[in-house]
Design a protein around this nucleic acid. Structure first.
Lengths: 211, 211
DNA sequence: GCATAGTTCAAACGGTCGTTTGAACTGGAG
DNA sequence: CTCCAGTTCAAACGACCGTTTGAACTATGC
């Protein structure tokens, strides 16, 4: 079984995901990416136009399947009875954390990349993520506000941004054990992490939002 | 009333907090810091030894009062009846978010700086924060595990790292409204944000941890 | 005033950065 | 084989980076 030959463009995107996910945007140079991709540095300009455009393309590529799955799940939920907060939270969180299950080793790398970019120090970089995620995310916020009529819309929005934050942090694997925090273990199984996070968030949404 | 004259060293630390908080470690150059501090670039080497050492000193300075207050609150709680999870969460979260109330404009800047460094893309940078915060944080984790006997220690640790993550994100002001997320407003009052976050976390700890 | 420690300075080093350029290469169509 | 579009290459540009250096400056004590 022969692996299809990767184009230079694909190699650049793959390595960009990995490297940007490891070092962030500012901390990753094009030379590091191009060397790892066995490409010439001018190829970045040729295929993408600039470093930032490479990032933009990588973010768009990484987010596309996540967004599609979130959209599919929300469409499905809204086609039936009014969805519960739990169903909505699950529909949102699981695609983000399912990357490992669906894609093997590369999935974890993409998850980390997404989480990392979503909270880059630079607002400009963060907005690359926001542009890709906003259309489907605002639908989820509206659906959650509808599903939680006892809480104020502002309060639901507060819970919602907390959910975004926690999801991104878990994706980026930044919530690793602090040194000396005995008893804290990386959850090896991503579906278990998803269950834990959904349970945590559902409790917070159901009992911890103000009215 | 004359303002005391700032030493070069102090100016460098103050500006470093601001600039590292805005741009992250990699995205902030020493020249930007020294220009803003009206200092010579060699002063960084003279007073601190290196860029990273400047960061380390800034982190230590920023965390010292937060850590002291967390320690004082925990000591106080443990001197009485066994503290509730809510009391512990509050004792941990409030000092982190109180920076604005206690220090005026500079407080928000310091909060952002701390939050930003805590989740820098580079593990090496993140560990500068961890070194400063670990001693008091591990005490809080142990106290929370004791206060939540119905949950497994691993589950409490999971909730704990989520709390760390959310606190840092709120401090860093990275949880700003996404474009188009109508209804999401920056909470102008930090004590209200603390109340909202404590409420959210308490619900998640009380109802959302697995056993 | 001199000596000394502390502090700051401008210039420089060696390295890295993103972007650009024009030539060379590659592959496909006619 | 030629032509052409697409692609890659090495070299270079101008800018920026953290670190270093030796001289100059500053303040204090004798």
């Amino acid at each position: 079984m022969e692996t299809p030959v990767e184009t230079t463009r694909e190699r650049l995107l793959n390595v960009a995901e990995q490297r940007f996910g490891e070092g962030g945007y500012e901390g990753t140079s094009l030379r590091a990416i191009t060397v790892a991709a066995a490409a010439n540095i001018a190829a970045v300009n040729y295929h993408f136009g600039s470093k930032e455009a490479l990032l933009r393309a990588a973010v768009a590529r990484a987010m596309a399947p996540v967004n599609a799955e979130r959209r599919r799940r929300l469409d499905q939920l809204e086609a039936g009875a009014p969805p519960t907060p739990e169903a909505l939270i699950r529909a949102f969180v699981e695609p983000g954390l399912d990357l490992v299950l669906r894609r093997g080793e590369r999935g974890a790398l993409i998850a980390r990349f997404i989480g990392r970019i979503a909270f880059d120090p630079s607002r400009r970089i963060r907005e690359l993520y926001a542009v890709e995620s906003e259309p489907i995310e605002s639908r989820y916020l509206a659906a959650l506000q509808k599903a939680l009529p006892q809480a104020s819309p502002d309060a639901v929005a507060f819970g919602y941004v907390n959910m975004l934050g926690l999801l991104a942090l878990h994706q980026s694997q930044a919530l690793s054990p602090t040194p000396g925090a005995a008893g804290v273990q990386d959850t090896a199984d991503p579906s278990e992490l998803a269950e834990n996070l959904v349970t945590f968030l559902v409790a917070a949404f159901d009992h911890g939002l103000r009215s």
